[in-house]
């Protein structure tokens, strides 16, 4: 049901934009006002969320220990999976962000042998398709800068060239356009088909997937099918960027407004959703702390500095007589 409601929500957004900017002709609202508001909500929400997280204390060092920790010199340790220095932690974080190493360790659990024996197995598909989706999305984001920068920088043209290097069809097919659909479809089907994942999936898991699918499909439709007027679109975007927004003389396609509205929704929704893992990964105590608690004391920021350490010797000094009376052993006789 969660999937169905999320799908209907995205469909409703599509219709709002299609009717609002299509038949109702509210171009300024959908082309200027909503994108500005969405960007402001995104920026303010992002800052709010980060500051909120940064204010939360981390009471314990809870680094994930993914391998042999540093101990005796003759025991081989895993410096990236179980880092004990800042450098190791930075390397772990970079590898996590770029290659999703923790997803690579994903396992599946199954009942085998007359449904009584629990069996664990490797499950790499989540890692593979998550990587495909994220890399494709990132490339698409960078590629879109051709509509936001004037003149178009050479590096963006290079990325565009590499992305369409197979030169399939006219306009040339971007590999990332296919890959993002493949990635998103897998991530969605995983939640629908796998009963265990389905059981724990909520509307806030499905909604971003449908929203991103809507954005990708409307973008693909504009490029390959209706050939949206890119020059007019860039006139609008550059107007927005220079804070002198003006709608181009030629009416823009309704699909463009649907695309823009869905992207605005994504931006405004982003800071309050699970998509904030973009920033959250850097603030995860399981990832950003070195596992060095046996060499270095980790101070709980909650600790009241007025409460001083109380050693056993001092404790015994306080209660020695009572302890002797009760027959408890003491280290120092009175």
């Amino acid at each position: 049901m969660a999937a169905f409601y999320s799908f209907m929500a995205v469909l409703a957004l599509v219709f709002i934009a299609a009717i609002g900017a299509g038949s109702a002709g509210m171009y300024t609202l959908f082309g200027v006002a909503i994108p500005y508001v969405a960007l402001l909500v995104f920026l303010a929400g992002f800052i709010y969320r980060i500051v909120y997280w940064a204010k939360s204390p981390v009471p314990f060092s809870i680094a994930t220990t993914g391998g042999q920790q540093k101990s005796l010199p003759w025991i081989k340790n895993s410096p990236w999976d179980n880092p004990y220095t800042v450098t190791g932690t930075v390397i772990r974080m970079i590898l996590e962000v770029v290659t999703f190493r923790s997803l690579f360790r994903n396992t599946k659990i199954d009942l085998r042998v007359d449904n009584v024996k629990v069996v664990y197995g490797s499950a790499k598909f989540l890692w593979l398709f998550a990587l495909i989706f994220h890399m494709a999305f990132f490339t698409i984001l960078i590629r879109h800068m051709r509509l936001f920068l004037d003149p178009v920088p050479a590096c963006i043209q290079k990325i565009e060239f590499l992305d369409s290097i197979l030169q399939v069809g006219i306009p040339t097919l971007y590999q990332t356009d296919l890959l993002i659909l493949v990635g998103l479809t897998f991530l969605l089907l995983r939640r629908i088909v796998d009963v265990k994942v389905n059981y724990i999936s909520l509307a806030q898991d499905y909604f971003p997937l449908f929203l991103l699918l809507g954005i990708a499909i409307s973008g693909i439709y504009m490029r390959y099918f209706i050939k949206a007027d890119v020059i007019s679109i860039k006139e609008l975007t550059m107007g927005l960027l220079s804070f002198k927004p003006a709608l181009p003389e030629k009416a823009l396609e309704t699909t463009f407004f649907v695309h823009l509205f869905l992207v605005s929704c994504l931006l405004a929704y982003f800071p309050f959703s699970k998509l904030m893992h973009l920033a959250g990964v850097f603030l995860s105590p399981t990832r950003n702390l070195p596992n060095n608690t046996r060499r270095q004391h980790y101070t709980n920021p909650w600790n009241d500095p007025a409460i001083k350490p109380h050693s056993y010797a001092a404790y015994e000094d306080d209660f020695r007589e009572k302890m002797i009376e009760a027959g408890l052993p003491v280290e120092k006789e009175a």
Partner: peptide, 14 residues
């Protein structure tokens, strides 16, 4: 994120 805002070239794109 706001790079396009302050990197914009000509004021009017045409």
């Amino acid at each position: 994120v706001t790079f396009p805002f302050w990197a914009k070239g000509k004021a009017v794109y045409r």
